[in-house]
């Protein structure tokens, strides 16, 4: 069993009227099973309403399953006595950078998590130093979060999660409100944490470019997993992706169209360099 495992997970959003009668139920996740290996970088893709954010909230025990079970590091998230243990092990970064920073000074915000779990003062300082360094925000530690850019705020939020020394970080569309520079900044930081510190990363997003560096891509639609594989495997199925209302990176699509048109291009090209190389090969290298 991996670090996160879900089995036949079902989650209904229930709307009740004033008399607590069920007015409407909305199935966000529908019989989903998944197993995430420790230390891997998993990207979850899906258009709005595909259930990807709902899935993310299950990993942190913010939501508990209507049916089925979710285990995080072997602990059942429905077990209320384990809630804090689970949240300590699986940190979460949200979409809006402003609404998740609590401290009035960067370093105090990073210390907020360790304070909550009762870490001794000296140890908090050590963790804050390490976490700020890990996300490259040490230079900003005495600044007010209000004076940082969106990307910097998200890095502070990531540091705040890191300070709790989690085994796993779940990022729920962390780049949706950022400009392109901020997006790159955040993805670079997350990738580095995964590679250097061996933290399991679950990145929920709808930007295709961000998932290229992942070990595994999961595509969700209507509460189910519809595609699951390495980025190359997933992106070689362009038509299928389009069916789920997802775009593919531009180079991938270009290569795909060329291939359809009869050019000798491999499937699932992810980067520009890769494209150029195989394009040159396909053209017989005559234009070099």
């Amino acid at each position: 069993m991996g670090i996160i495992k879900a089995s036949k997970l079902v989650f209904d959003y229930i709307r009740r009227d004033e008399e607590e009668n069920i007015e409407e139920t909305d199935r966000a996740i529908d019989g989903l099973s998944v197993d995430v290996e420790k230390g891997s970088f998993v990207a979850v893709l899906g258009h709005n309403g595909s259930g990807k954010s709902t899935l993310a909230k299950h990993i942190n025990a913010i939501l508990v399953p209507t049916e089925g079970t979710v285990w995080v590091s072997g602990m059942d998230t429905a077990d209320e006595s384990k809630v804090w243990e689970i949240r300590k092990g699986a940190g979460m970064v949200f979409q809006n950078p402003d609404n998740q920073i609590i401290g009035n000074v960067v370093e105090e915000d990073v210390g907020f998590g360790p304070e909550n779990i009762g870490v001794p003062t000296d140890d908090i300082w050590k963790r804050v130093d390490e976490s700020l360094k890990a996300v490259g925000m040490t230079a900003f530690r005495y600044k007010s979060p209000n004076k940082l850019s969106g990307g910097q705020k998200q890095r502070v939020a990531i540091a705040g999660v890191m300070a709790m020394r989690p085994e796993c970080i779940v990022l729920d569309e962390p780049t949706a409100m950022l400009d392109p520079d901020g997006r790159k900044e955040v993805i670079r930081t997350v990738t580095e944490l995964n590679r250097k510190e061996g933290i399991t990363v679950i990145l929920i997003t709808h930007y295709m470019e961000e998932v290229i560096g992942a070990d595994r891509v999961i595509v969700m639609d209507e509460g189910k997993i519809v595609m699951d594989g390495t980025p190359r495997e997933v992106f070689s199925r362009v038509d299928e992706l389009k069916e789920y209302r997802l775009d593919v990176p531009q180079v991938t699509e270009l290569a795909y169209e060329l291939r359809k048109g009869g050019a000798d291009m491999p499937a699932g090209i992810l980067s520009i360099d890769e494209f150029v190389e195989s394009f040159m090969a396909a053209m017989g290298g005559t234009e070099a």
Binding site: N60, I62, W84, R87, K88, G91, M92, F94, N99, Q100, I102, F112, G113, N116, I117, G160, V161, M164
Partner: peptide, 8 residues
């Protein structure tokens, strides 16, 4: 939600 996620 963010505060709860950070064990507050």
């Amino acid at each position: 939600m963010a505060m709860e996620a950070r064990c507050y």
